[in-house]
């Protein structure tokens, strides 16, 4: 069912923001292909009449009241920041919007 090409794996790596070497791409293409072959088994029984389950325990309408709760101080927020400047997280340049 699923043969993954190197290009497909490269595309997945890009979507997932993983900078992989050519060697890794090759390796994962092979491994993922094997795994996908195995898990494709699900299609054997997943007929159209079966309702999919996203949540094992059925619950609905879990809400909280619209109430303000304490937030972090700027110091607390910054505590794990790799780079912090002018009360904000500093990140490398962003290429284009969205």
């Amino acid at each position: 069912m699923a043969e993954l090409s190197r290009e497909q794996v490269a595309h997945l790596a890009k979507l997932a923001r993983l900078a992989l070497s050519d060697e890794e791409l090759e390796h994962y293409a092979q491994q993922l292909g094997v795994i996908l072959d195995s898990v494709a088994k699900v299609t054997e029984v997943a007929t159209a009449d079966i309702k999919p389950t996203s949540h094992a325990i059925e619950m609905t309408n879990v809400f909280r009241e619209d109430e303000i709760r304490p937030s972090f101080s700027s110091e607390t927020t910054s505590r794990n920041a790799p780079e912090w400047e002018d009360e904000r997280f500093r990140v490398p340049r962003i290429l284009d919007e969205e």
Binding site: V42, T43, A46, P52, T53, S54
Partner: peptide, 8 residues
Amino acid sequence: GSAQKVRT
């Protein structure tokens, strides 16, 4: 999608 049906 199929995996979720198997869950059911």
